[in-house]
Each structure stands twice: as C-alpha cells, then as structure tokens.
Design a protein around this nucleic acid. Structure first.
Length: 680
DNA sequence: GCTAACTGAGCA
DNA sequence: GCTCAGTTAGCG
C-alpha cells in the first residue's frame, strides 16, 4: 500500500546520523515509521511524534511497546502508538533510540482511553499513562506467562444471587448472553454485595468476556477477591492494588495484557486495567472519595469506567448502598437502568431506625447527653443490644469537622448572613464564615441563646473513652485510620469506628449508633448531604434486620431531610432531590466545573485567555487556603469556572489550550482540576 | 521541561 | 569578526 523502498528517502533525511564515525542505521523495510507518544507532561506537546524504525528494531517496535527516543535533545520514554508506512512530518525523522521491550504494554483501547480521560480532565496523556501503565519489571516480564485457565461458570447460580432485585436476574441474563446492559444498582441493607459483583463478573466471563471491578479500598478488594475465588476459583482473576509492590503489580498487569486472565479487581488504578474483550465494568460505592485519583489530572474511577463502557461498548454496573447524584443522572438520562430491591424487600432487610435527641434543645437539657454525647435513648438502645450481640458506634473522623459549635448545646455555629459554617481563621481571631468571609462579632446561639463557642472535640479514641465510661463492663474496640479492623466477633461488645472503617460482623450488628450527625452535615462542601447519607447508610446497612431485633439509632435533628432519607431508607429519592438541587445550584454533575488555583496574576491571566462557552460562570477569584498538610504558598487564589454539562468538553478543551500556551511560555503554574470531588 | 539556535553586547 | 551570556522557539 505504500511506496516501494520506503526507507530510502527517509534514510537520506535521517537526522541524528552522525557526521563522522557510525553509519546511519538502516530503516525497517516494512512500516519504517513509528508514531510515538513521548512522555512529556506538557500540554502543547501532548501529540504523537514520528520516528524512524531502524531495521534492527523492526520486530520489537510493535504498537504498544515502550521505547526510548531522542526528544528536544535528550532521551525520553515513549510508547509506540502505531507503525505506519510514511510520515506526514515535513522534516527529518530521528531514529528510535531503543526499544525497551517488545511487550505491548499500551493496548489500542487504553491508548484511546488515556486520550479521552485527558480530554475529560483537561490533562495530558502522559500524566494519564503514568496512572495506567505500571513501570516495567524485567524479571517478571521474562517469566513465562500463565496459561489461560479453562472457565466453567454456573450462570443459573448468578441469576439466583441477583433475584432479590427488580431487573437483577435480567441483568445477569444479559451479561451471560454477551449483551451490554448498564445498571445503577442500589444494594439493600445487609447485602453480600461482594458476592453479587462476583456473580455478575462470572456471568460476563462465561462468554469469555473480560471484567474490571473497582472498589474503594484494600479491604473491599479483598472481599471481592474472596467472593470471586468462591464463585469462579482462584485462577480467573487478578488483584490490582497500590500496596502490591512493583513486581506483583507488573505480574498482574501482564496477566491481563497478555490475555491470560480476564477479570481485574482493584482500587481506582484498576480502572485502567488492560483487560481483553471487555464485557463489564463495575464500581462499588462510587461516592467514596477514594475513587478520586490524587495525581494529575485527578480522574475519578467511575468516570474512567464509564468512558470505557462507552468506548468499548460494554456493560456497566454502578453499585452502592447509597446513590450519588452522578449515578442518578445516569438513570435520569436513560443511560442506565435502575436495579433496586422492592420496597418490601428493603423493609424486610432493614433495621428499625430511630432518631434520638429530637432537637438540639432537647439534647442540651439531657444531662447525660452532655457528658457522653449520647442521648438517653441511644444509651438504652446500646445497653439492650449488648444482650444480643455487637454494637457499632460511628463517629466523625478527627479533623474532619472544622466548624464551631455552641459550647452549651453543641448546635453548629452558623453565619447569620448566609448560614455558612463559622470557623476560626487563626487562634485568637474572630470567628469567620467559611462561605462569605464575614467576621462574626457578637455570636448568639439560635437554639439556646448561649454565647460561647467551642471547637468540637472529636475522634474515635475520645468517643471510645466516653462510651467506655458509660458501659464500664463492656469491651470497647476502635477501628479507624491506619488501624482498621476488617471484622469483629459476633459476640456482644462495642466497636467505635470512623466512617468507612466499620468492621464487618457475621450476622450483622445488634445495634448501630450514628453520633454527631449534625457535625457531619455542617461540613462546608458541595457534597455534604450526599456524603453524609452515604456514610450513614453504609453503617446502617451493617445492622441486623428489624425482625431479628436490629436497631439503628441516629443522634441528630429529626427534621433534617438527610436524616429523613435515612429513616425511610430512600437513597434513590434522596439522589433525585439532590440532583435537582445540584441543577438549580449549577453544581456537578448537572454543570461541569473546574477550579484554577495559583498566583492571583497567573490565575487572572489564564481566565482572561479562556474561550468560554455560552452559559459559563466565573466565580472568584477568592483567597485559597491550601488543605491542612499541604505546603504553604502565599497569596494563592482560586477561581471556579462552571458551564452547562453539554459544554463540558469545550471547557476542558479551552483549559488544555490555555495550559499549553502557559507551558510553552514558561508562565507560573496554575493548577487546573475538572470536577474536583471536594469543593470546600 | 530541555536543548540548540539565535540574538546582540563587548571586545580585539 | 569572533566569543559569550542571555533569550527563546521548537521539540519528529
């Protein structure tokens, strides 16, 4: 198809051919040009460059291979995207320096995905590829590949597992027959969700198609790992988590990229797993912020998987006990079908949910509550439940809540102008509203007329001490942060856990107590309600059904709509309202939103250069204080840009372009983040 | 980001 | 006419 003797002209043009000494390398006779994606993290260089393939490398320089090339005067890493007959490039082509390995580590699907993820998040492909392709481990690569294991699956069993859901059996049937259904699945309380995910994977695998499963953390990955081993045996899936280490990670990666194994289970980076013949992508608890990548361009595993489902025309399951506004949007746009348990099934599986300490004023009068943060009703429920089994007490994480509360009745202190949360900008300074920035001089509690403020003292250890004092004869264990208990005995006992660290227990907890719910709701963030409900539903789902005496006691304000959604166990209805509110507030996912952080002058220069679509809004610049722990940078500002969702790709495009211009001009960096998980 | 090529100042 | 520091375009 190409002109005869392709090498000749380019040989003459080949640069890098030394003027003295060595003769220029002979170009490959077949497809002598490699289109290479060079690893440079600069927006304006995020495009393929052509190199000449020397005959010596003709065999090894396969599409997807890692190569070294001379770029801007130095050696850089790159991936061969494709081999072509001739280049469009006018000038001379430099030869490939070296083929690092003939292993095709970048499949066409992942190459394409990296492009769409970069476009979606206004980042570069090289940044995305750093997340998608693990570093090479030569020893592992040399070892023989595992032989594909014969698959034998019990599809009827998978159908039975999903029977408890409207549309569940149908979902499995379609997966098993090679179709690509898309579902937003709301798991009922106490569900063995890991097992259901494993069955969905098995049904897909029965047709020889591949599966990617993303879970928020190591512990959930381990659960699904076990469930898959039970359903399918141990040889059909690999686990991909950050803590594997380079050799094990590369081994798992190769097993997938060589097609020996077709099911990948892991944390967020597994969203990029090079699974062959992708049939299903699934994410569990997509509201968990662990699904958001911390490195540029900060992609969210759910969005990566949805892009893959779209590009590779495969099935998708977005599953959780709660439901995010993003998942709700998939339902409302008709992209996905709801898979939910019937009302009766949910009721049968739910514990009895009560709200204790109906009002803050009541709580303030409750002397016991003031000493132990525990209303009498909650105390009694724990005491009774301890006769029957273990009790879970969920308490907000230390440092999670930064706003102030009334010293007398613990009602969160709110700004009288905009009802934003009050916080101390610095010790000894006047309380300031975190939303509107107004200083509050003569604060008076709206509930009890108290005038003293306190920073709430929180943390699971402190709570455990208080609970321990209230129940001196019972063992109290804690689970949080670095010390997470994955499981506890079904024997009576109290576990104090922070959200996400609740241990599993066989048969469920006799009672689950949710403490300080008003403090979690007082967090200034765009996802506060959704996130609070998610955490409470996840904890409450661990309680035994009411028929077995299971109880959930929620310490909070009964009138709060979020607590009402918890009592009614209505994640879908809540998500519907939440999505509606996001719409009227122009927040994601109804709007596409980006933040620009940097020096005031840099940020304003960048915003000026943006070609914004109609309907775009610019908020700020506002002073930006870096999150605690981040290194201090002086006078950083933040601008929030938002556009209607339909204009999202246009927003990303203009951001990439502006970044490209800034990179090329060596202007001070502006950190761009599209749809950040948190916006405090 | 980096290098290489280009620029003009300074000097013989 | 040449060197050298400083600048900046372009990277195959």
């Amino acid at each position: 198809m190409d002109d005869d003797r392709p090498g000749e002209r380019q040989l003459a043009l080949m640069r890098g051919a030394p003027a003295k000494g060595r003769a220029p390398a002979e170009p490959a006779t077949e497809l002598p040009v490699a289109r290479v994606l060079v690893d440079v993290p600069l927006a304006h260089l995020d495009r393929p460059f052509d190199y000449l393939v020397p005959q010596k490398m003709a065999e090894a320089a396969v599409p997807g291979a890692r190569v070294k090339v001379r770029f801007a005067g130095q050696d850089r890493d790159g991936f061969v995207l494709e081999r072509i007959g001739r280049s469009d490039h006018e000038g001379m082509l430099a030869p490939l320096r070296r083929v690092v390995s003939a292993e095709p580590v970048l499949s066409p699907q992942i190459a394409r995905l990296s492009g769409s993820v970069a476009a979606r998040y206004a980042g570069t492909r090289s940044d995305v590829l750093r997340l998608a392709v693990p570093s090479r481990h030569a020893t592992v690569e040399k070892q023989a590949s595992i032989e594909p294991a014969e698959a034998t699956h019990d599809v009827p069993a998978a159908g039975r597992a999903w029977e408890g859901y409207v549309g569940g059996a149908e979902l499995v049937r379609r997966l098993a027959s090679g179709e690509s259904p898309r579902a937003v699945w709301s798991a009922k309380p106490g569900e063995d969700w890991a097992s259901l995910l494993a069955h969905a994977a098995a049904a897909t695998h029965a047709r020889g198609r591949g599966v990617v499963l993303c879970l928020p953390d190591r512990r959930d990955v381990a659960r699904v790992d076990r469930a898959l081993s039970t359903v399918l045996g141990e040889r059909h899936h690999v686990v991909l988590t950050a803590d594997l280490g380079p050799a094990a990670r590369y081994r798992a990666f190769l097993a997938l990229s060589r097609g020996a194994v077709r099911i990948a289970v892991g944390t967020r980076a597994a969203a990029f797993a090079p699974v062959h013949d992708l049939g299903l992508v699934a994410i569990w608890d997509d509201g968990d912020d662990l699904h958001a990548e911390l490195r540029a361009p900060y992609p969210h595993a759910r969005e990566v998987l949805l892009l893959r489902a779209h590009e590779e025309s495969c099935a998708a399951i977005v599953g959780a006990v709660a439901r995010t506004a993003e998942a709700q949007l998939l339902v409302e746009t008709g992209w996905a079908e709801e898979v939910v348990a019937t009302r009766e099934a949910v009721r049968a599986a739910s514990a009895r949910v009560n709200i204790a300490g109906a009002t803050d004023a009541e709580l303030a009068r409750d002397a016991f509550a003031r000493s132990a943060r525990l209303p009498k009703e909650a105390h009694d429920a724990i005491r009774d439940a301890l006769q029957a089994g273990p009790v879970l007490v969920q308490t907000p994480r230390q440092g999670y809540v930064t706003s102030l509360a009334c010293d007398d009745c613990r009602t969160p202190a709110r700004c009288r102008h905009c009802s934003g949360p009050l916080a101390l900008p610095a010790p000894r300074e006047a309380p300031t509203c975190r939303w509107c920035g107004r200083r509050e001089q003569g604060w008076v509690c709206s509930v009890c007329d108290g005038n003293r403020l306190r920073a709430p003292v929180l943390g699971e250890r402190r709570t455990a001490e208080e609970i321990g004092r209230a129940f001196p004869s019972v063992g109290v264990r804690t689970s949080s942060g670095e010390r997470v208990l994955s499981e506890v005995d079904p024997a009576p006992g109290i576990v104090v856990a922070t959200p996400g660290a609740e241990p599993d227990v066989a048969g469920g907890y006799a009672c689950v107590v949710l403490l300080d719910t008003w403090l979690m709701l007082a967090r200034p963030d765009l996802r506060t309600s959704e996130e609070s409900l998610r955490r409470w539903l996840n904890a409450a789902a661990l309680a035994r059904p009411a028929a077995q005496g299971g109880r959930v006691v929620v310490v909070g304000e009964s009138g709060d709509p979020v607590l009402q959604a918890l009592v009614r166990w209505d994640p879908a209805g809540f998500a519907r309202r939440e999505l509606e509110q996001r719409g009227s507030a122009h927040l994601p996912p109804v709007s596409r939103l980006a933040t620009l952080v940097g020096d005031a002058s840099a940020v304003s220069a960048m915003t000026d250069s943006l070609e914004l679509p109609p309907g775009a809004e610019l908020l700020g610049p506002a002073p930006f204080d870096p999150p605690p722990g981040a290194r201090l940078q002086d006078s950083q500002v933040r601008v929030v840009v938002r556009v209607p969702r339909a204009a999202g790709s246009q927003l990303s495009r203009t951001l990439v372009q502006a970044q490209g211009v800034r990179d090329a001009k060596k202007l001070p960096t502006v950190r761009v983040q599209v749809d950040p998980v948190a916006l405090g």
